[in-house]
């Protein structure tokens, strides 16, 4: 069985929870374990947050609380494309933002280009730790595409062994 879905949404932090919950809902019928579900939600959250705050530099979201420095919203969309094939989930999170100059450096744990945001620099490290495979394609001005693979349940593992 192959199943596919695509989501496109505004690159604002208000949509971070929507994105991970949508992907989680897409795989529920496979009866993933609590751990698998948490892994996928965390990885999606990391990739989507990166697209929003680094790709488009939308730091604070719609929120509407108060306008502060850097609070303006840059227009842009984040796209999530999921393919579920025999218990293996492929997730692609892409943006058309500013891209990453040095992907290798960006993927180093604790490296961050925005220390003032007090983020941990652990985004890619988390995606790597919680998913089975991670691939990042990016260049300055070209946007970024993150591809992740996760085997869900026993079917995913059996098919993978073959």
């Amino acid at each position: 069985m192959k199943n596919e879905m695509e989501l496109i949404f505004d690159a604002v932090s208000d949509n971070e929870s929507f994105a991970r919950v949508a992907v989680a809902a897409f795989i529920t019928h496979l009866n993933p374990t609590v751990e698998e579900m948490a892994d996928i939600k965390t990885a999606v959250s990391e990739a989507v947050t990166n697209a929003i705050i680094h790709g488009y530099e939308n730091l604070y979201g719609y929120g509407g609380k108060k306008l502060r420095e850097g609070g303006e919203i840059h227009p842009g969309k984040v796209r999530i494309h999921c393919i579920l094939n025999k218990g293996i989930l492929h997730i692609e999170v892409s943006d058309r933002g500013k891209g990453i100059e040095n992907v290798e450096q960006a993927m180093e744990p604790l490296f961050t280009t925005k220390p003032e945001l007090e983020r941990s620099g652990m985004g890619f490290a988390f995606m790597e730790a919680f998913m089975d495979d991670l691939e990042v394609e990016s260049g300055p001005g070209e946007g970024t595409t993150v591809r992740m693979v996760k085997k869900i349940g026993i079917d995913g593992w059996i098919d993978c062994e073959e």
Partner: peptide
């Protein structure tokens, strides 16, 4: 029930 690396940033900060 859910935390991503932002939580790590909060605690480390």
């Amino acid at each position: 029930r859910f935390m991503d690396s932002s939580g790590i940033g909060i605690i480390m900060g």
